[in-house]
Design a binder for these strands. Structure first.
Lengths: 334, 334
DNA sequence: CTGTTAGCGCCTTCAA
DNA sequence: TTGAAGGCGCTAACAG
């Protein structure tokens, strides 16, 4: 005997009016006599009636909902982007739904499909790959969408992304000036944003022949552990070294461990990170890092998405955010 | 001339069959001739047809969606809970939607209402207050729900929460043994979980008369800044002090700053945190903290919620998780 | 195996 | 200012 959901008919019956009238009360239409309206509202309240939004949407009323699919929940980069996004979107009285693909292309497709089939008003996607299957689905769905953290290979797709190549170049320029005998590059999962950073770095660093490159280091913990390995394998205690770590989380993990091992930063080992997540400026050795204005990414994406929802036919907005090297303490020029 | 969404009728027409048949193909029913099925699937693919999930749900097919409302996105506690929750929930092939109330009761109500009106199958809520308005809505909605990070005052409400009073007591016991001349308590926003920790602490710490209490410190940054104040105002450099900080994020911020100021931890200042977020074990001075098994909270909530969705009539599950003091380095007994 | 007929809960003309 | 009727896209019995 599960409690049946109360519907518009129920409350219409109880009020002795038609469903249409109740519907008008729901949408706060001005053309219902005030007294009647009040009475109906009371009845709705008494029954804790909440309109079925699925039915409302099916029948044509606005969803007021947008979805955002990120790659990873436990990564401050994405969380900060989502947070910035939420700030704008909720001001406009939209609801935001986050979900995480966990860097899994299949899961991403599933989530995007779910969003589309739920007919949300707009979608923000941080795609696992720049040639994600999701893109075709998104395009043919007709739902406005924006990509983040990637520059789409196809034209006519909206995006907000850092100029990652340029970011890599900034780090390389700094490395060139730093001019350390030993130089190490530490990167994460394979992803367009990463390849560009790597290319930007390698194309501009003038001693790539001796560059050591470690891949697939993506988390704070992995960085922390990696640091010990680095010390042993690459003689960090003996040779003055520079580290370019393409993810702040990892960089902070590395620094934390290096300090524990008594290695001075930036004197003995200089570290440049990437992202400029919030804690980078607060950690033990404030991080010199390539900033991509994280909060902005979320906010810009939100504003543009809102625009696209209003006016879907406009040309697709494309934001390539200029990165900036923030010099703090983990790597400085003398 | 916006592209009209393709519907089940469209593809039925094109295939020259009835909507019912297409519907059967959608739900992968076995009783459609293989050949026909293949042909219809092809047509669906050609049109990038994605069924309208709103209509499906309205007509009775399962939503396969659950919602989780947390208080704060940029807080590892909630993110880790959500991540654990997601792990279980997605194995069961459900979609999870996260949203954040930002510690705002009104926004919480709005989000919960949104979830209910979207007729999700289940809801997890970290309520801003233990007497949240949301509870009534949730109860009368008939949708299974579980509260986290709070012990509801009403009976018959499912929850998964740490025994926060006990957590406070654990810290107090440790403080008693530590027996420092100066003792400071640093807490965050007003919330049941916090009051209990405070009570548990105060009821069991045997020198409360001299206890100094700072409130409303909730983030890493605030902790970082607070530390400088503490040093000046409470003479941390002169008097051996113990700090109980009811949030790891804050504790780490404080420690970071204290180290910068040349204060030794745990010798000069001992710090006990609360939550045992992931980075607590990896930070510069691994944190002694009260663990509430964060990942477990999410996972247990997920498993129970799934059960509740299957069998709504069963007694409501209630999990009071026993906290545990994890002694690492930031506070140790000699 | 496939088609027909009803709704699901709500909104939206169009009349009254 | 209110009501009646049709339809949104899909599923679920029943028939055939």
């Amino acid at each position: 005997m599960k409690k049946k959901n109360v519907t518009i008919s129920d409350i219409a019956a109880e009020a002795g009016v038609s469903k249409a009238t109740v519907s008008r009360v729901i949408s706060d239409s001005p053309k219902v006599k005030a007294e009647l309206k009040a009475r109906i509202q009371q009845i709705m309240k008494d029954h804790s009636y909440i309109p079925n939004h699925l039915a409302q949407s099916l029948a044509g009323s606005p969803r007021k909902t947008v979805g955002i699919v990120i790659d990873e929940l436990t990564n401050f980069f994405f969380i900060e982007v989502a947070d910035g996004f939420d700030q704008i979107i909720s001001q406009a009285d939209y609801c935001m739904q986050i979900s995480s693909s966990k860097w899994n292309a299949e899961k991403e497709v599933k989530l995007v499909q779910h969003l589309i089939s739920n007919r949300v008003d707009g979608i923000v996607l941080a795609p696992v790959s720049e040639e994600s299957e999701s893109l075709e689905m998104l395009k043919s769905s007709g739902i406005p969408f924006i990509l983040i953290n990637v520059i789409p290979t196809q034209k006519e797709i909206a995006y907000v992304s850092c100029d990652n190549y340029q970011g890599g170049k900034l780090a390389a320029d700094f490395f060139n000036k730093l001019n350390r005998p030993s130089n190490i590059l530490i990167t994460g999962f394979s992803h367009q944003s990463l390849s560009l950073r790597i290319n930007g770095f390698k194309d501009n660093f003038n001693r790539c022949d001796k560059l050591i490159h470690y891949e697939n280091i993506s988390t704070y913990e992995q960085g922390y552990e990696m640091a010990s390995v680095l010390v042993v394998r690459n003689g960090l205690s003996d040779t003055k070294t520079a580290l370019f770590v393409t993810n702040d989380n990892v960089a902070i993990g590395i620094i934390t461990r290096l300090l524990e091992l008594g290695i001075s930063i930036p004197e003995q080992v200089s570290v440049i990170g990437y992202d400029d997540i919030k804690i980078s400026s607060f950690c033990r050795v404030p991080l010199t890092t390539v900033s991509q204005g994280i909060k902005d990414i979320g906010k810009i994406a939100a504003m543009e998405l809102l625009e696209m929802i209003q006016a879907p036919e406009r040309p697709k907005p494309k934001h390539k955010i200029e990165p900036q090297l923030i010099v703090r303490q983990s790597a400085i020029l003398d």
